[in-house]
């Protein structure tokens, strides 16, 4: 007798990726790395504040004219924003769905809790929520200027100084940047493992890279409020 022919239809790549936990985590890894690359550029751009108002405001304006004349005014910025928004939404949605699955997979908790997990892994979920809320405030503060104490269009330097001259601006920002550091510390190594890019030999190097990058990002971002607080930038 001839063996039966396989007649079942196999699911498509997209279905396989979004339907499985492994695939959904790959989506989180890719979007996470995309946002991380953006953060590195953002941090480096922020440091221009140390070269004075002309330099910083000029850089902010250049971001709007970037790609001209191929792209029109602010087009590059809007493309970047669309990409980032898609990344945030996919990352958050996958995280939410996976968290629900993870919680459901352990319906009865252990009576004797084993508290050996490190801080960065335990704070990934709520740290991510804190970061999402921070991003909303950050956009209202320094992109639209809605909640900025100065809110002057075309003068990001003045707006940044105004934000970091308030106690709440400094507090929100510093807490969020510590959250970024913790999130990146576990996130980058985790993304490497999820994508299968980190093997036996490279895992130590990637761990060191994650920690270095997390520390560099946090330090780079915190340099700006600290400079305003100490009067180096005013």
């Amino acid at each position: 007798m001839a063996p039966a022919t396989r007649t079942d239809t196999r699911p498509s790549t997209v279905t396989l990726i979004w339907r499985t936990t492994v695939g959904k985590k790959a989506v989180m890894a890719v979007t996470g790395v995309a946002m991380l690359l953006y953060l590195v550029v953002h941090m480096l751009g922020n440091l221009k504040i140390f070269f004075g108002p002309e330099d910083f405001n000029g850089y902010a304006h250049w971001l709007r004219t970037l790609g001209e004349p191929f792209l029109r005014y602010e087009w590059f910025l809007w493309f970047a924003r669309a990409g980032l928004l898609a990344s945030v939404v996919l990352h958050g949605l996958a995280a939410y769905q996976l968290t629900r699955l993870d919680r459901a997979a352990r319906p009865v908790a252990y009576v004797h809790r084993d508290a050996r997990r490190d801080y960065a892994t335990r704070t990934m979920r709520w740290g991510g929520v804190i970061l999402a809320l921070f991003v909303v405030w950050h956009i209202l503060d320094l992109t639209t200027g809605t909640v900025n104490p100065r809110g002057e269009a075309g003068n990001p330097y003045g707006n940044v100084v105004a934000t970091f001259s308030t106690w709440y601006g400094n507090t929100i920002y510093c807490v969020a940047m510590l959250a970024v550091g913790l999130h990146v510390r576990h996130g980058l190594l985790s993304a490497g493992r999820t994508l299968g890019a980190v093997g036996r030999r490279s895992q130590h190097a990637v761990r060191v890279a994650s920690e270095t990058l997390a520390l560099t990002l946090t330090a780079g971002f915190l340099a700006v409020p600290l400079a305003v607080m100490t009067g180096v930038v005013n």
Binding site: I17, T20, V22, G23, K25, A26, G192, R193, T194, L195, G196, A197, V198, G199, R200, Q203
Partner: peptide
Amino acid sequence: PLPSIAAMNRGFL
């Protein structure tokens, strides 16, 4: 070893 998980992820993707 933990890297087995990364290897399976690579294979799955």
